[in-house]
Design a protein around this nucleic acid. Structure first.
Lengths: 239, 239
DNA sequence: CGTCCTATTGAACAGATTCAATTACCGTGG
DNA sequence: CCACGGTAATTGAATCTGTTCAATAGGACG
């Protein structure tokens, strides 16, 4: 697990710093002045590792923007079976629900910082800014496309294909220049995201390691040695 | 398979008739005058059974509104494995893509009628109407919630649970007052939607039939005899 | 009434799960 | 600094659910 100190490396007195930097989210459509007011509305909070932000079924009252750290979203079946529907990284929004209730539980993976807005305030803010509305819509459509891609993974891919897809997704999201990924989630979380068990995930990791496709370094870091091979496997072309 | 004649039962000279009636889609936010102009923009086309409307990767140039009939959306892996990401029924929109290309293939299940709009025209129309924009966004969020629910199904439910979930979904969508569902799709389509094989789907149907939970009538009609039982199974509570 | 396609059923097989045991790792405290 | 303890990861073996391959039955339609 990545160090808890990672979250403290960002200045706390500059709440939405990540918004300025990360161009992935719709913060990018804000002018400097708008961004300033956006920040003023949302106080930054620091949350420890493995803390729930809200539960499935809770009234959707708050919207979060993750600044540092990471989180997972999941849904539960009555008997405890769990499906992780996504992982969140700096710049991501969460809690923008369709209805009045959250449709999933959100939980931090490591110590994390986030801006927190009352939902009505967030929505009023968005409503007054057509470009942000467009961006929010664009983001929703992007999420939808990703969700459908995940359906292909869950419905039709085998274990190695699932893990390869997952590693490539993470590589694009939090991979560094040396093709290394510091995994903030454990094997169980990965398994619950990929529709597998932790044992199967572990075996798939071992298989990739043995094949020289990846390397496992200390501190839950994965190094991608043969990205092209992973791409081939992930696409299902090697089946 | 349901008769091809079903599509012909709606008056052809009244293109978007379904829009007037079905309150599920965002057509409901239109005034009568707007609806008239909306229809004038989009000529109605009638398409035979099993006709592709567009393919994955095609430039997204057209937006469709299904008036009668039904369709399926799917994605393919290079080796032919298929994941059906959704079924569409009268009132549903399709082709509202995030990017310039369609992310999936759309194909009619039976003979179907639909309004067809050039995408830029559709977007200009929406852009000029804030309530419709809101509705489009609301629909996208609803789809996203459904997609995540489907992830739970594909990642964590067993075969009977998947089929039970599917039947209840269809019951809400196209079930009649007598709890009967005329299935427009075959076993393979259902299997590709549920991440199973057609054989497993067939066996699950047989098991429900034997248990007296459903009845299979002529013409691919399923009658739900014990909806409560299906609910229990679908939720995973009986596991 | 025969043909074709789909659905159903059967039997062997495979991939992932389950249960169990061992190993590795990280933080803690001596 | 190293031993210790607890958690997570890995590995192993048996099992099981769903798949695969094959054969039969059923229905729609000419």
């Amino acid at each position: 697990m990545r160090s808890v100190l990672a979250a403290a490396e960002l200045p706390v007195d500059h709440p939405c710093a990540a918004c300025d930097i990360r161009l992935r989210t719709f913060c990018k459509t804000l002018t400097a002045e708008e961004l300033r007011r956006f920040k003023a509305d949302g106080p930054t909070v620091t949350v420890g590792a493995r803390q729930p932000l809200f539960h499935e079924g809770d009234p959707a009252e708050l919207v979060f923007n993750l600044i540092s750290g990471s989180a997972k979203l999941y849904k539960l079946l009555p008997d405890g079976r769990r499906q992780v529907t996504g992982f969140l990284f700096p710049g991501d929004f969460l809690g923008v629900a369709a209805g009045d209730e959250h449709a999933f539980t959100a939980e931090t993976l490591e110590a994390s910082e986030m801006c927190r807005f009352p939902r009505h305030r967030f929505e009023a803010f968005i409503e007054a800014r057509p470009p942000m509305k467009r961006e929010l819509y664009r983001m929703a459509m992007h999420e939808l496309a990703a969700a459908r891609q995940q359906m292909v993974l869950l419905g039709r891919k085998n274990a190695p294909e699932r893990l390869a897809s997952f590693l490539l997704l993470l590589l694009g999201r939090i991979g560094d220049a040396a093709d290394r990924i510091a995994l903030p989630m454990n094997r169980t979380d990965i398994a619950d995201y990929l529709g597998l068990t932790k044992e199967t995930v572990s075996r798939a990791f071992t298989a990739f390691k043995s094949a020289g496709t990846i390397r496992l370094l200390a501190g839950d870091v994965v190094e991608i040695l043969d990205g092209a091979r992973l791409e081939t496997i992930a696409s299902g072309a090697s089946h």
